[in-house]
Simulated scan of single mutants.
Amino acid sequence: MDDLDDRILGILLEDGRASFSAIGRAVGLSTNAAAARVRRLESTGVIAGYRAVLGVDEPIRNDAIEAFIDVRLRSERDSDAFLSWARALASVMDAAHVTGPFDYHLHIRVRDMAALDALLRTLKKDGGVEQTSTTIALR
């Protein structure tokens, strides 16, 4: 999985019925390339299925990890561009620009500690993040 896959998953989490052409436009791919990526995510089990949600919020799975990540950006990273990029990540539930020693406060949900580690690495490698501080929600 890469940044494009994360962005595609974020789109599908918001709208599981998004068309391949809409997904492609949102992430800068052709319709065929977007379709190929979605099909690969389905065939590898990253996307296990689609479902209708009937007027209630999706419950957080008992084994999921919910956390808050404070983020300080590198000086050259554009703040607005980071916000758009971060909100497109599938695991980011919310992002807020904040005051204090950090630039952003991210509310995230991941399947396990390995996914949390991967997200932190992605933030630093691809997101222009200089420093993070993570707090895991206990309940």
Rank of each mutant, 00 (worst) to 15 (best):
M1F: 10
D3F: 13
D5F: 14
D5V: 04
D6P: 00
D6Q: 13
I8V: 15
L9V: 05
I11R: 02
L12C: 08
L13S: 09
E14Q: 05
G16Q: 07
R17A: 11
R17Q: 14
A18T: 03
S21H: 10
A22L: 09
A22E: 05
G24D: 00
G24N: 00
G24S: 04
R25H: 03
A26K: 11
V27R: 03
V27M: 04
G28Y: 04
G28D: 05
L29V: 06
S30L: 07
S30A: 05
S30Q: 03
T31D: 00
T31P: 00
N32H: 14
N32L: 15
A33N: 00
A33F: 01
A33W: 08
A33H: 00
A34P: 03
A36E: 02
A36V: 03
A36D: 02
A36P: 06
R37K: 11
R37M: 07
V38C: 00
R39H: 09
R39N: 12
R39Y: 06
R40M: 10
S43W: 11
G45V: 04
V46N: 06
V46Y: 07
V46Q: 00
I47V: 13
A48Y: 01
A48Q: 09
A48V: 11
G49W: 06
A52R: 15
A52T: 12
V53W: 09
V53N: 04
V53T: 13
L54T: 12
G55Q: 09
V56R: 07
E58I: 15
E58D: 13
P59G: 14
I60S: 03
I60E: 03
R61W: 08
N62E: 08
D63N: 12
I65W: 01
A67C: 03
F68W: 07
D70K: 15
D70A: 12
V71W: 08
V71T: 10
V71R: 06
L73P: 08
L73H: 02
L73V: 05
R74H: 13
S75H: 00
R77I: 14
D78N: 02
S79W: 12
F82L: 07
S84P: 05
W85R: 01
W85L: 12
R87G: 02
A88N: 00
A90M: 02
A90E: 01
S91W: 12
S91E: 11
A95K: 10
A95G: 00
A95Q: 04
A96I: 14
V98N: 11
T99P: 15
G100Q: 08
G100E: 04
P101C: 08
F102E: 01
D103H: 10
Y104V: 05
L106A: 12
L106P: 01
I108W: 02
R111W: 14
R111A: 14
R111P: 01
D112E: 08
D112N: 09
M113R: 13
M113N: 13
A114W: 03
A114R: 06
A114L: 01
A115F: 10
D117A: 13
A118P: 07
A118D: 15
A118F: 06
A118H: 08
L120E: 14
R121Y: 11
L123T: 02
K124W: 01
K125E: 15
K125Q: 12
K125R: 11
D126P: 10
D126S: 13
G128M: 10
G128W: 07
E130K: 03
E130A: 12
Q131W: 09
Q131H: 10
Q131Y: 02
A137C: 10
A137K: 09
R139N: 09
